[in-house]
Design a protein around this nucleic acid. Structure first.
Lengths: 223, 223
DNA sequence: CACCACTTGGTGACAATGTCACCGACGCGC
DNA sequence: GCGCGTCGGTGACATTGTCACCAAGTGGTG
């Protein structure tokens, strides 16, 4: 029941669950996999199950009526898609979409089991509400950024976030513009400016971070 | 237990609750009031209770580190502050604030009772999750608007929303700029343009809608 | 009433960002 | 090689944000 090999133990928020609850979760869930670049939920594709991500990341993005795209957030290993799933169930016609950014493994929990868990376990309730709360406060922050933050600051921030200990980012100007909800030309100009200052070096489909301290200083500017 | 005078009956999402659950909710909650213009939650002011709004509206807005403000959403009679409260409890240091826009009456439910209700009633769970989901999808839409929608379209939309069957809106350019997360000067210019077109008439602290059809047409443009 | 402080709104110059049309360079399959 | 799609660059222009400043209204006070 508390076998340390089970996936539940690797979830920071779930390892503290009561023993029988863990058993229920393990018995009634199944492990699924998906390759990179696959849409796991989106318009006309509501999943039947609540997903708990074991490995990989899922990018959640949105396409507006004007044709513009923007990345809303990412779901990483150890987090759940519960809120996005819940939104899909509640409002069939919303436009967000979840796409695997890497090969992904996840535990799928049927809705009925999910509801049982909520009813029976305070720890599980706390986990779910914490996830909702975190997501909502993150969305508040994102609104603030999109509305008020300068683009050079946001871009520097995003470069550092995407680099994740590497000094080279494999991406295109187009993809970066979707990350920030702006136009490709704007990204091109900003990256040119960063390169002129000697902070980065660009090549086709690639950005190399040369002067991380300066980028971080700009990124922290009023953030 | 199902007395039609009780406040629960006036909540679209709660009137279908099981009888004993209604009783618990009624017995363990208390009715509170607040005057207009009061901050009912915000930084350094976490409420002890979950609130269910009986009368009035609460405006939730945010102040960024740059000093800019933006209105995130409103809570109307028949809705709950649950998610905002949950966020406050989970993340003490977030910057959103709830302000009464009218005199307000609300039912206050202690956290422990709230947790009991979640555990015991599927209907109550559905109510709470629907509220969370609606809020999150609304925030998605807001991000889309802030990032991609033209300001004239957003302003026309906001004027119609704020007018609510009246043809006169009592507000200032400053307040409108906070609604849309932009600058006062920008609002002034747009309203001048609307007035030049004969759609509105401005006076100090007041906007009169003259040509609602044209405003609506602009507001629906790509939305 | 005069005086003062504050709010509200107007204005022009300029910066930052978004939009559009177009171009050349690169990579890939044939 | 050739064609074709992706990637990035560029200039002109529109929209929006920022800043400094001003003028008119509003309300309080002596």
């Amino acid at each position: 029941m508390t076998n340390p090999d089970e996936w539940v133990e690797r979830f920071p928020g779930l390892s503290r669950l009561e023993g029988p609850i863990k058993g229920l979760l393990l018995d009634r869930s199944s492990i699924i996999s998906a390759p990179e670049g696959m849409s796991i939920f989106g318009p006309g594709n509501s999943p039947e199950n609540m997903l708990f991500l074991l490995d990989g990341t899922v990018r959640v993005q949105q396409v507006s009526e004007t044709g513009h795209e923007i990345v809303l957030y990412r779901i990483h290993a150890g987090q759940s898609c519960v809120l996005t799933t819940a939104c899909l169930l509640a409002f069939e016609d919303y436009s967000a979409e979840g796409i695997t950014e890497t090969p992904v493994r996840a535990a799928a929990v049927p809705r009925a089991v999910f509801d049982d868990l909520i009813a029976q376990s305070k720890s599980f309730r706390d986990f779910v509400f914490a996830a909702f709360s975190k997501r909502i406060t993150d969305l508040f922050l994102m609104i603030d950024e999109v509305a008020f933050q300068r683009l050079d600051v946001r871009l520097a921030h995003k470069l550092i976030e995407l680099s994740a200990n590497q000094n080279v980012i494999i991406t295109t100007h187009q993809k970066l513009s979707v990350e920030l909800g702006t136009a490709r030309e704007v990204i091109s100009r900003q990256l040119q400016e960063f390169q002129r200052r000697g902070w980065i070096v660009q090549s086709r489909g690639r950005v190399a971070l040369i002067d991380r301290p300066h980028l971080e200083q700009l990124a922290d500017h009023n953030a």
